[in-house]
Structure formats: structure tokens, C-alpha cells
Simulated assay, not measured.
Amino acid sequence: MTTVLSVNLNKIAVLRNSRGGVEPSMLKAAAKVVEAGCGGITLHPRPDCRHVRPQDVLDIAAWLPAGVELNLEGNPFAGARTGYPGLLELVERVRPHQVTLVPDGDGQITSDHGFDLTRDSARLAPVVERIRAAGARTSVFVDPGSVGASAAVAAGISRIEIYTGPYAEAFAAGDCEFAIAECVRTAGDALAAGMAVNAGHDLSQSNLGAFVARVPSVSEVSIGHALIGEALYEGLQRTVQRYLAILAGSR
């Protein structure tokens, strides 16, 4: 099977927000990654609006070409506040293809743990029904090694997203056998229950190939932080050369 790449654009918004204004443009960035061939755009608007904002979600959803999926991530239990209407309210307005539920709190710099499907699926069921009514499928962020897919299926959840942070850390340290085995275990539990498997967090060019070679039938990977960082390195030389050419041409 072909694994879909969904590009997370949150880091573009972080850079824009650090300066104010509209640059770098979220829409221009989305257009570039779609032009390059990605199959999806991932956006994770948080209640404090520290990176992707609700207006970014509205703009990209209105622009998104046919055949490219929009994946919205967030905590469905984080309440609305000034500037943020709530995840489910955004879902109902933009009607994305997929909603990935993540139990992150305001104090987290980034997502660092998942829901417990055995414990949390019943609580998530009304949320999933509301998402389904908006025409989207539901994926739930889970820890590697966790099981409980049967409870998730009963709640109407159709996918999991395996949190791959521990795997990436172990890979960088040179010994990822236990970490990858935990991901395989969780993926196997989900596939046996009829669910699809997504994955994301700290996946990169160095560790992605080994991951998809070992974890069976990964439908989608969501990659942002590493991809944007790698793009900076790979594009800096060419960009500097273009500036130098402009200066040389002006003399």
C-alpha cells in the first residue's frame, strides 16, 4: 500500500507569529507542499493560538484542491475562548476529511502522549458522533504499545495515530528495537479490529524509512517539525545564491 504524506504546517505559523504580519504565508506554504505531491495538510490549532489560528484553518480549507485531504488535530475537550471557537466548532464549519483527537493541554509545548482507548473511548463516543455528522472520519492519537482497538471501534473511531516520538528518540540513540516493537504491537491491535493506522511526531528523513518498513500497513504519516527544518537546510544555499545574484545584477 502507498502511505499518504500529510504535511503539518504549524511551524510556518510559528515563524509568522514571531514577527507579526502575514509572512511567511500559510497559503503559499500549503500550495508549495501540495505542488510537491503531498496527499494531505495537517493543522493543529490550539486554544492559545500560538501557531495555527482558526482563520488559517478557514483559509486553507477554502483553498484546498480536490484530492488533497485536510486533517485537523486538537483536543475536543479544550473549551472555546477568545479567538478560538473550539475544535468541534471548527470541524463543523470547515468539514475536514479527518479529525485527529489529541489530549494535549495548554502547558504542553508539543503533543507528548495519547488517549487510552480502553479508558477513554466511551468518553470520546459523543465527540466522534459529532465529527461523523460533519462528514469526517476520526483518528485518535495513542501511545506506542497501547491496545484497546475494540473499544475504539465500538465508539465509532476509524483510525489511530501512533505517537512516534519515543521511536524517533530511540532511533537517534542507535537502539530502536523495543520502540519499534511497541509501535508494531499497537498497529497490529488496530488492524485486527478493522481500524486503519496513521503515525506522527518527530518522523524525519533519517528514521521514516525504517519505520514504515517495520510497522504494517501505515495509511498516513503526519510530519511537520522535521520536514520544515530539513527544508530550511536544503533551501538556504539556493536562496542565499539568489540574493547574491540580485545584488550582483544591481551593480
Rank of each mutant, 00 (worst) to 15 (best):
G79M: 12
A80N: 11
G86K: 05
L90N: 05
V94S: 04
P96S: 10
T100I: 13
G105E: 08
Q108N: 15
I109L: 12
T110I: 11
T110S: 09
D112R: 09
H113W: 15
D116F: 13
D116M: 09
A122Y: 07
A122V: 13
V128M: 13
E129C: 13
R132P: 11
A136E: 08
R137N: 12
T138V: 12
S139F: 09
F141T: 00
V142M: 10
V147P: 00
G148I: 02
S150A: 15
A152P: 00
A154M: 06
G156W: 03
G156F: 03
I157S: 00
S158Q: 13
S158K: 08
R159G: 03
I160Y: 03
I160E: 01
T164G: 08
G165D: 02
A170F: 00
F171C: 02
A172T: 14
A173L: 14
F178M: 15
E182I: 00
C183R: 00
C183Y: 01
A192M: 06
G194H: 11
M195P: 06
M195N: 11
V197D: 04
V197E: 00
N198T: 12
N198K: 07
D202F: 14
L203S: 05
Q205L: 15
F211D: 00
F211W: 04
V212R: 07
A213R: 15
R214D: 13
V215N: 04
S219Q: 15
